[in-house]
Design a protein around this nucleic acid. Structure first.
Lengths: 217, 217
DNA sequence: GTCTATAAATAGATAGAC
DNA sequence: GTCTATCTATTTATAGAC
């Protein structure tokens, strides 16, 4: 009975933390770090505001937890691709899929990343920086492998990175804005997710694949 | 003398307004609508805070003025491209250049647009919506022309739009963040603007150009 | 048109009871 | 672990003198 009570308490605590996390992620995506208020976050989570400070220490602490979860998810997925066997082009497509999957599981992901890019890293905790950096290093490794194997041209990793996340984040992150702006043009607003991902892959491969003729420049 | 005084007063007033506009654009780009404070904006402009309300009515009024200037500049530049004579592919590259030029003249442009995309249109005044819409319509017209002439495949205008502005805004808008995150890897951080624009053009054309063989699917 | 002073509201954060 | 009540700082905005 004592143990039972303990277990229940622990589960409730984890549920509270999880509710705050989810509400925070949603609020930060929709309104940004400065726009989201701790009052609304707590209200949306259905818990008291003081709980936010108990579980995450501060508004910034909650934000950092959301960011770490986001970027870790991507980093874990893409890590194997830098040294994976097989066609580098397939690995590059898998890199796009990994990003797309992480975004699908976390609807708050694209908007938060878009804001973070514009934010001069002001809200980016030092603990998250290496994670983001790891993602870029993985892509650079993948591109180097493709080049060693003669499949890829020499391209700047950041340009490839931006060529992928740019359209992806803008497409997924602007969905709410699109619904407002294009409410009167449904045929314009209608896009299929898979079509968008395929588009990104075509565009990306076109910039990195070596000329079939064989010259690398 | 009376006229002279009048003229001088008018010029000073315009200068005040212009200083507020510039300071506001910079602050909104760096910190977002909610993150930027009217106090800092006025201080950065070197004028009194009350002047902001006199000239722009509210913080939101200033923000709307900045947005209208941004999107009007793009809309004006691209407008002729929908019906321009000549190769549609060249027009599409000119579309990219028009965006790039507007960003070059307005360093605040990319970051503000990035934030706006994530913002569910919350800070987008109704007067600005048709301007943004016009840009998209121009691109749709350009793509339709290219398809009529057999040069382009059938592609969703929004995908092309996102394929262009995504990398472009992310590349240009993340410059401050990049300087922070990649301070220790200058060879990674070093990108030439022209290289980035060329990259975007290659990626875009690859997704819209019809197969040279002639089949449109 | 420009400034000073201040109102009015809201923000993030904490102390302490339970 | 959770809630109530509150503190303090900051924010947008305005009234009124010059």
């Amino acid at each position: 009975m004592k143990a039972g009570r303990k277990r229940r308490r622990r589960r409730d605590s984890a549920a509270t933390r999880q509710a705050l996390f989810a509400a925070g992620a949603t609020a930060f995506a929709a309104r940004g770090f400065d726009g989201a208020g701790v009052d609304e976050i707590a209200a949306a989570a259905g818990v008291n505001k003081a709980m936010l400070y108990y579980h995450f220490k501060s508004k910034r602490g909650l934000y950092t937890a959301v960011l770490a979860d986001m970027f870790s998810a991507v980093a874990d997925r893409v890590a194997p691709l830098a040294t994976a066997p097989g066609d580098p082009a397939a690995s590059l497509e898998a890199f796009v899929d990994a990003l797309a999957d992480a975004c699908r599981e976390r609807p708050h992901f694209p908007a938060i990343w878009l804001r973070e890019l514009a934010d001069e890293g002001r809200h980016l905790d030092a603990s998250v920086v290496p994670i983001v950096r790891g993602i870029l290093d993985t892509l650079a490794g993948l591109l180097a492998r493709g080049r060693r194997e003669g499949r890829f041209r020499e391209v700047h990793p950041l340009l490839v990175q931006f060529g992928i996340i740019g359209p992806l984040l803008v497409y997924l992150g602007s969905a709410p804005a699109r619904r407002r702006l294009l409410a009167d043009a449904p045929q314009l607003a209608a896009i299929d997710d898979e079509m968008a991902f395929a588009h990104v892959k075509v565009a990306t491969l076109a910039t990195v694949l070596a000329d079939p003729a064989g010259d690398t420049q």
